[in-house]
Amino acid sequence: MRGRDDVALLDAELEAMPVLSERRAELAEVFEDYAPAVTSFFARRGFGPEDCRDLTQETFLKAFRGLPRFRKEAELRTWVLRIAANVWKNALRTSQAEKRSASKTVSLEEIQTLAKPLARVAAPHLAGRPASPLDRVIREEEQRMLREAVEDLPPKMRRCVLLRVDRGLKYREIATLTSVTEDTVKTQLYQARQRLKDRLGDHFHVSGDDGEE
């Protein structure tokens, strides 16, 4: 069956593909190059060693089965990565289906984590003693002002701030996640800090720089 030009190779190309036995050495090399990384990728998603082993095998089975559809102009790394993403997607779907059939229980620890007081950091001088009604009002008002100020930042600037301050990501990583250059990330962070300082400087201590990379 011949597919559309953009989704399948021409028959002539298919016929030109060497059979598996003739490509064994080449496939072995691809497996050696990428199997540890694919295993690490699944492990970093929280899968256990046995699941990682199965998911890695499934990724390469699909990759090698689909080699006739692999376009030579595409990068092999991209091809393997895309199949790994699909395998991960299917694994998530399976685990979600399993979760749906199991009843969800929430531990006391989870409840305590969720109920962690939001404003405890906003009032470090009050730590260790009960907050008075006035303290609580002040904290809530500070939180409201902060949220408004952050939401008023342009979206990309706000995302850069959250990724930098909350996660401590490097400029290079933020640039990857926001599809801009590292220099743009630095500019966005500098401008965000200036805006927040102008608006909230009377109520919050704003450090002078963004910290070292």
Binding site: L114, K116, L118, A119, R120, V121, A122, A123, P124, H125, V137, I138, E141, E142, Q143, M145, L146, R147, V150, V161, L162, V165, D166, L196, K197, L200, D202, H203, F204, H205, V206, S207
Partner: peptide, 25 residues
């Protein structure tokens, strides 16, 4: 209007982390 500034001001980065923690939920 806005609350009075306190002599010991909370750190902006810490407060932002709290805000982000709430968003992450």
């Amino acid at each position: 209007g806005p609350p009075a500034p306190r002599s010991e001001k909370p750190d902006l980065d810490d407060a932002l982390r709290e805000l982000a923690e709430e968003d992450r939920r």
